[in-house]
Design a protein around this nucleic acid. Sequence first.
DNA 1: GGGTTAACCTGCGGGC
DNA 2: TGCCCGCAGGTTAACC
Length: 293
Amino acid sequence: MPELPEVEVVRRGVDAWVTGRSISSVDSRHPRTVRRHVGDLRHDLLGVSFACASRRGKYLWLPILEGRVDEHERPERALVVHLGMSGQLLVQDPQSPAEKHLHVRIEFDDGGRDLRFVDQRTFGWLMVDELVPDSAGGHLPSVVAHIARDPLDPQFDDDHFITDIRLRRTQVKRALLDQTLVSGIGNIYADEALWRARLHGGRQTERLSRDRLSDLLAHVRAVMSEALAQGGTSFDSLYVNVNGESGYFVRSLNAYGREGEPCLRCGRPIRREAFMNRSSFSCPRCQRRGPEG
DNA sequence: GGGTTAACCTGCGGGC
DNA sequence: TGCCCGCAGGTTAACC
């Protein structure tokens, strides 16, 4: 399940392998994968090259350089990628066989490794989109404009976030998963940050103090930074970096997926509850629903 | 208009 | 062995 740390690992890999190379062919095999794209992906990408890969939350994009690589050219379009739940961006030897769920393959005129979008559940997608100005003088794809900055973004405004989340008057886990409030957090890291902050996800945001929310935000940053350092979280082959390798952070999870196992702080069995059509994992003693928790 | 829910999708594991 | 069902969850359209 790619959340911010996993997407950042992929961004770094794509950036290292793909930047500056000229595209010689585009093979799009699945209509859902480019479903948001209004033009012809092949027509839009043939002959162009990519500038340095960028990311906001779980969205990744490769700015398009229309002509020869020129550091002074300001890209006006980008190839935007969202991995969904099971999407993978792989950098492969052109001779290696097609993956079972290979949906898009991009080859380069230097004959080196190609770029492949593989996705079992087809929740992921990619598209070419125009770049629009952001609030800080930079540019980002228009489809990403409604997404909030992520907690690892140097320009993330903590005070603004804490004010906004309290105004929402909703449950704190619901708010953490709302990408328009703060981006990059999915079910796994939401549960992990809440466990570290000793907060139950069902607590109402307007009843939490600014200090409590600031502490939660610090835990969000900590758990994501640690996961990033370990290459992300992998439960199976569904999440891998561009070389097909899994991360190791699953070994460091304290709550997610540990139903019935002892809490590493107090020893009580971790509970699983249904929440927003998915599962939430928490400690019944450390993370109480009441205001005293 | 903002909060909430269901649908999208495929593979896997458990139960029968 | 094979079938059926539930589960996994990011995003968004539709609903309240």
